[in-house]
Design a protein around this nucleic acid. Structure first.
Lengths: 193, 193
DNA sequence: TGCATTTCTTCACATTTGTGAAGTGCTCGG
DNA sequence: CCGAGCACTTCACAAATGTGAAGAAATGCA
């Protein structure tokens, strides 16, 4: 299971240094978990129990709209945290489902444990601040792309920036994430080929 | 100038309580500023000097793309913080311009002062965390709206949720913010009337 | 007030994207 | 190995939105 924490700490160190003490805290409170393809963790209608870090595998975040359609709101590209953060943090009922598109390896921490580690360690608050800023910038950029780029340009940009997603995620989820009809995306793919 | 801080504290109290000590700190380090319509503060190409709170008035955030077109990425609806936050925080060159669409009343704090107040007061870090989360949720929702709603639905939603924006902001900026061509928006307005 | 500028609307037409049905190919469990 | 279901493509057509020019309306300034 050490590999899990290697991936985890490598990811965290992109934003902050982690002293040994905090590493030990993480090893104590984060629990490894393997999930099979198509597992649903943190289903809509429930309060998310865990904050998840994806060590390997691909997940998506989706909700079901009034017409019964699945809307994919997020897809991961490599290791990162993946949680309905707002609902998790404030113990609110989530509207979203976290769906393992492939087999996944996770590190999970419970909501109670997050409060404990916040007091024990010194890195957590600073890290949380930074990752929130990073996520905010990403989402701002996503919104700008959606207002300024055509469907074809959005797809081309995803190929360029996240080839791993194209290779590993069914097209229908990508289409939903990009706000493109699957049929239209198919046509766009043909013109790009 | 007390009115400025009344608006300011009322806004901050939506997320956290502010002890007297922290209120005094704010009164010391935030400076009131009046701006005329069409002033540009924090222009693209420079490091933002101040973190801005809009007491009254309307501002937009825009950048100029490769074709020379202005892309409006944010418009405020009532009092709130309005800053190229990432660039301000990390003293990076900003790509965005903050433009006063109407006369504006602001409270400003310098980047150096933010570090000072962080040490003096007790509310700031908690507040920053919360407002980042709030902004993140807003931007996620904006992205979801852009993927799932038609141009007409996006405009209708803006009318419903932010009538003040419709009343006070030139349509061309609203169109850009919604990712709609001004001509198309004009047509949409006619069908809604 | 009156002129100049900007903003908004309107129109005809082009382009992009959506829609639903049908067909093809793949995958996975039995 | 087979068949059912799923994912993806393809197509013809519909609908939504973009485009650029022209005019109307509003705004700001002298």
């Amino acid at each position: 299971m050490n590999r899990y924490f290697e991936v985890f700490f490598d990811y965290v160190r992109l934003l902050v240094d982690i002293p040994e003490i905090d590493q030990d805290i993480c090893r104590t409170y984060f629990k490894p978990l393997q999930l099979k393809k198509d597992s649903i963790i943190s289903p809509a209608g429930k309060i998310p129990e865990f904050h998840n870090f994806i060590v390997s595998g691909y997940m998506r975040n989706y909700y079901v709209d009034e017409k019964g359609q699945e809307i994919t709101t997020d897809i991961n590209d490599g290791p990162r945290f993946f949680t309905s953060y707002d609902a998790f943090m404030y113990r609110k009922i989530s509207k979203e489902n976290l769906h393992c598109i492939t087999d996944c390896e996770l590190l999970q921490i419970s909501r109670d444990a997050v409060d404990i580690t916040a007091k024990l360690g010194i890195t957590q608050q600073e890290y949380t601040l930074q990752i929130l800023q990073q996520q905010l910038e990403k989402n701002k950029q996503r919104a700008v792309d959606l207002t300024t780029l055509s469907a074809e340009q959005r797809y081309a940009k995803l190929i360029k920036n996240s080839p791993a997603i194209i290779k590993n995620i069914p097209l229908k989820y990508i289409a939903s994430y990009l706000g493109i009809n699957p049929g239209s995306l198919s046509r766009i793919r043909k013109t790009l080929a």
